[in-house]
Simulated assay, not measured.
Amino acid sequence: MRFSIRRILRWLVALALGLAAFSVGWAALYRFVPVPATPLMLIRAAGGAGLEHDWVPLSAISPHLARAVIASEDTLFCGHGGFDWAAIEGAFEDNEEGARLRGGSTISQQTAKNAFLWPDRSWTRKGVEVWFTLLIEQLWPKRRILEVYLNSIEWGDGVYGAEAAARHHFKKPASALTRREAALLAVVLPSPRKWSPNPPGAYVARRAGIIERRMAIVERDGLAECAR
């Protein structure tokens, strides 16, 4: 019996090491290779949502959009190591009674989730997300993290990434997005299949004005310098 338990433990250790090595290699590959599709894209497509996704380098995306998502989603992006601990602490406090995970995710965490993981709100998925967030923060520069984020995020039913979003919603390439259009796209990120950037509803239009003012602060204080 002791031999069997030890054998099982050895197999478990070997499996864990194998998975860790695979994840490191996967993250290292995406440091240089465009992410062809994410688990969410494939799941949505299998459900009949379609798939609009065109990878473009960060240099082909309007800097307005980089500033807009940083202003809207993660103003400390260029300076943190992957986690905004104050935001995470606040999210846990807000959800303590229901033990639900909500809010507090940085752009790095969202990138790890989108590029590598399945859509779920379980503790297991969240734990794996932490691991991949640590990996990409160590293996990728911030510019690459933002590039993958902007090419992978959902911006409508079956619409993924900045290029597809710009063409779908504004009939132009991502490089030509105006300041206002970038703010409108940033606003709908929490609920891209519910809200529309064009035409925007009253809430989206009002919120876009707030994001535009924050973008000015981001630019003034150099909070998006890592995206250059």
Rank of each mutant, 00 (worst) to 15 (best):
I43L: 15
R67H: 14
G48V: 06
P119S: 08
D120F: 12
R44N: 08
K113I: 03
G18A: 12
Y30D: 02
S23Y: 10
A21G: 05
R10G: 08
P119E: 06
L29V: 15
P34S: 04
D84I: 03
S62H: 05
T106H: 00
D74C: 02
S72N: 09
A37P: 03
L9H: 10
A71N: 02
L17G: 06
K113P: 04
T111M: 01
P63D: 03
A91V: 05
G98I: 13
W11A: 15
D94R: 15
W26K: 07
D54I: 09
G98P: 03
L76G: 12
G98A: 13
L51E: 00
G79L: 10
L19F: 13
G48D: 00
L42K: 11
G47I: 06
D54S: 11
L19I: 13
G103E: 07
G90P: 05
G103C: 04
V24G: 07
L101E: 03
E97D: 14
T75E: 15
A14E: 09
S72L: 06
S105N: 08
V33S: 05
Q109F: 06
N95R: 06
G50L: 07
Q110F: 09
S105K: 00
A99F: 15
M41H: 00
A49W: 13
M41L: 08
L19Y: 08
S108T: 15
C78V: 07
H80M: 05
F92V: 13
G82R: 00
P39G: 05
D74F: 04
S105F: 05
A45H: 13
R10D: 10
A68E: 03
E96P: 02
L40P: 01
L101Y: 03
F22T: 12
P57G: 01
W85T: 12
V56S: 06
P119C: 09
A21H: 08
A21W: 09
T106G: 01
E89R: 12
A68P: 10
R67I: 03
R102W: 14
L58G: 00
G81L: 11
W118D: 06
S23R: 01
I88Q: 00
L9M: 11
D54A: 14
D74M: 07
A14G: 04
G79I: 07
A37W: 13
D74Q: 02
L51F: 02
G50W: 11
F92L: 15
A115I: 13
E93I: 06
P119M: 04
G90C: 05
G104C: 07
T111G: 00
A68Q: 01
I107R: 00
P36S: 09
G81R: 13
L51M: 11
L40T: 11
E93V: 11
I70A: 00
W118M: 11
T75N: 11
F32Q: 09
L40E: 03
S72W: 06
E89N: 11
F32S: 07
W55F: 14
V13W: 12
V35A: 01
F77N: 00
D120R: 10
P119G: 04
D84M: 02
I88W: 04
L117S: 07
E52S: 14
R100I: 12
I107M: 01
L12A: 15
T111A: 07
P119Q: 09
W85R: 14
G103A: 06
F83D: 00
V13H: 04
L40F: 14
Y30W: 14
G47W: 10
